[in-house]
């Protein structure tokens, strides 16, 4: 019986500015492997398919349970988390590449800073710091808690940004994930105190109006965040604020 193998073709890049190249690897199949554990095998013995000694492939990961969002990469062309991509599901013939919408740090490791900057821009938190104790906040309805929970599952992995045709170097679009977080923090009774500020950011250049309704975001989201529903809800909020807000002036 011939030994089963896992074949990998990996897009590699030494520095953020150097030219990318492809390198192939072959490792023995072991049941239960996922893409990260396969990369760990290469790290242990960095020899490519031609038998040449090479540098270990660099990637980013943390939690290994699809909760941190760090190991996003293109696996056979589609964007997913490497940790939850089981070899028995994705196959033994693998093509790995870094996601294309964020700058490469090295090999499969990218810099998702743009997403965190977008979260800062929309105030994706509840500002409660002050000089004195303001006491308890208002109660949150269980219905809103449930809706908020769905949005709180977002792990800023960037899958939705990668699949979004409107998120690219030619546009200023903030992207589905950071926009969805506006809904999360506006739902919260204390967070709602900054509701107007958040909605006004969504009306700026790169805001919600740049959504092209291709709806890829919701299809690729590993956490099943209801992105398209949330964006439609926010469209309503932004329109009411933006158009009727002017009539209050």
């Amino acid at each position: 019986m011939s030994e089963k193998q896992i074949k990998l073709k990996i897009k590699r890049q030494e520095t953020p500015t150097s030219v990318p190249y492809w390198e192939e690897f072959v490792i023995p199949y072991v049941p239960g492997h996922n893409v990260i554990s396969v990369l760990m095998e290469i790290q242990k013995n960095p020899v490519n398919a031609k038998g040449e000694q090479t540098t270990p492939v660099v990637w980013e990961c943390n939690c290994m349970e699809e909760i941190c969002g760090a190991c996003t990469m293109l696996i056979n062309g589609s964007v997913k988390q490497a940790c939850s991509a089981l070899i028995d599901t994705v196959g033994t013939d693998l093509t790995l590449a870094p996601v294309s919408k964020f700058p490469v740090v090295r090999d499969l490791h990218v810099d998702r800073q743009k997403m965190f900057d977008a979260l800062k821009r929309v105030t994706a938190w509840i500002p409660i710091d002050g000089t004195y104790d303001m006491g308890e906040g208002p109660r949150m309805a269980p219905k809103d808690q449930e809706e908020g929970y769905q949005l709180a599952k977002c792990m800023t992995c960037g899958c939705c940004m990668e699949a979004c045709p409107q998120y690219n170097p030619r546009s200023t679009f903030l992207g589905p994930s950071p926009i969805s977080q506006v809904r999360l923090f506006n739902l919260h009774p204390t967070g709602a105190m900054n509701k107007t500020e958040r909605l006004e950011v969504l009306m700026e250049e790169g805001g919600i109006a740049e959504c092209g309704n291709a709806q890829n975001c919701v299809r690729v989201c590993p956490k099943e965040v209801p992105l398209t529903k949330t964006l439609a809800e926010l469209n309503k909020d932004v329109n009411l604020h933006g158009i009727f807000g002017f009539l209050k002036k």
Binding site: G212, Q215, N216
Partner: peptide, 21 residues
């Protein structure tokens, strides 16, 4: 102008709505 700001990707993500886009 809106067409210019998009980057179609149906070959990679062949979902129905993406084709409609």
């Amino acid at each position: 102008y809106i067409v210019f700001t998009g980057q179609a990707n149906v070959t990679r993500y062949g979902f129905f709505r993406n084709w409609m886009y």
